[in-house]
Design a protein around this nucleic acid. Sequence first.
DNA 1: TAGTGGTCTAGACCACTTG
DNA 2: AAGTGGTCTAGACCACTAC
Lengths: 242, 242
Amino acid sequence: MSVTSTRSSVALPGRQPLYIQVRDRIVLAIAQGEWDSGEALPSEFELADRFGVSQGTVRKGLDHLAAEGVLVRRQGMGTFIAEVADDWGCAEVSGLARPLETSLELLVCARSNAGEEAATALGLRRGAVLMAVKRLVRVAGEPFALIENFVAAERFEGLDARRIKQANCNLRTVWWREFGLRVVSAPPQFRAGIAGREEARLLGVEADSPLLEVARTAGGLDGEPVEWSVLRCRTDRYVYRV
Amino acid sequence: MSVTSTRSSVALPGRQPLYIQVRDRIVLAIAQGEWDSGEALPSEFELADRFGVSQGTVRKGLDHLAAEGVLVRRQGMGTFIAEVADDWGCAEVSGLARPLETSLELLVCARSNAGEEAATALGLRRGAVLMAVKRLVRVAGEPFALIENFVAAERFEGLDARRIKQANCNLRTVWWREFGLRVVSAPPQFRAGIAGREEARLLGVEADSPLLEVARTAGGLDGEPVEWSVLRCRTDRYVYRV
DNA sequence: TAGTGGTCTAGACCACTTG
DNA sequence: AAGTGGTCTAGACCACTAC
């Protein structure tokens, strides 16, 4: 395309910039399963050909998705679909900065009804049918946190404990492999709470111990809210870092 | 500069990209007080002339600083030095999303000695002389949080309550106006704690209520740590959001 | 109307990785 | 040596703001 005959459509009001359109078309392709997790995308020039834009424009779109954590770019190698991760921040031993081994255990996977917070976060009416998944996080073998995730039962028909365990209790993997959905987390909200009897037992702390609560919604790449979740963790031995 | 005679220095090993150099030179100019808070920078083309690079390269450098929150870009108007803000996240009424009026009250401004956490965060030895500033945050008139800030006394010679009050208790303004220092916060660490007697009294909650603790370091634009701070807030009525 | 930031292009060269 | 992402340029046009 010559510079002097730039397409007039470039200037239409209300139109998204080309690099955003490129981003969205790549998102669409990802959602349609064109590339698997960890797989390489075509090169910038190939994508530029495919979308009919210049390499620099493709680049800007890819950079956006890399900043969102959806893609990983490696110089000399290519652009890859990022491996899905549960993405629950990381626990650190106070002071120390070395990563600790964490494990996930599935406690509950059952239907439930949306409370006020969950309904608001997911844009559903109160009482809507949800799937509730409850997991226990261990750090270096010791109980550290409880995570509850809520998704609309309708969208996740067929979700059960078996599928979750198959994915090593990584829900993001389940959303991706079983339901073709890639999600990105919104900024979390923080609260301080108190451990109830059941929570204290599961986390191995005394009842009425303070717990850190982290709540957040996650949405599809199109921005629609899909998942609401709450993490409750002890912070006597570890620190929570976003 | 013609394309074919590209400067060979562009490829020297260990050399920073030009747009990073541009960023750093702008940071330097800001640190030297070349522009005041809220003031407009020269246009992209003027800066390009000044630094001897193309407009696109200047643009990339400016975009970086805008992403860091140091600059604000407004189409059709120009690029401005961002107003300094205390930047302590925002409290929100659970559910509601409208902004609430907040106020700051200075409680203490005194010398103290670095504890372990502060010393580690600031890269000082334990027991180093610090200035400790303690403030009370009110949201809609009600006590919400206590903030303690720690900085090296040596670097902030002459810091006192008067200077802080003159700046409406906004410490970032003091750092900027009185000490020519612009800081950017690192990601915070979160903990759940319990209100002591004094804290409970100041925050208007019962003793032993759970409190959310948010700790973080802030560094100069060159990345050196300058300030360590801890916020303790009640989350019974409000939610903390990063 | 002039000046600003925002988008887009085409083409060059560099650094890095793999064969 | 070939292919990839990363940087940089020069120049065009657009959208927004102010005068």
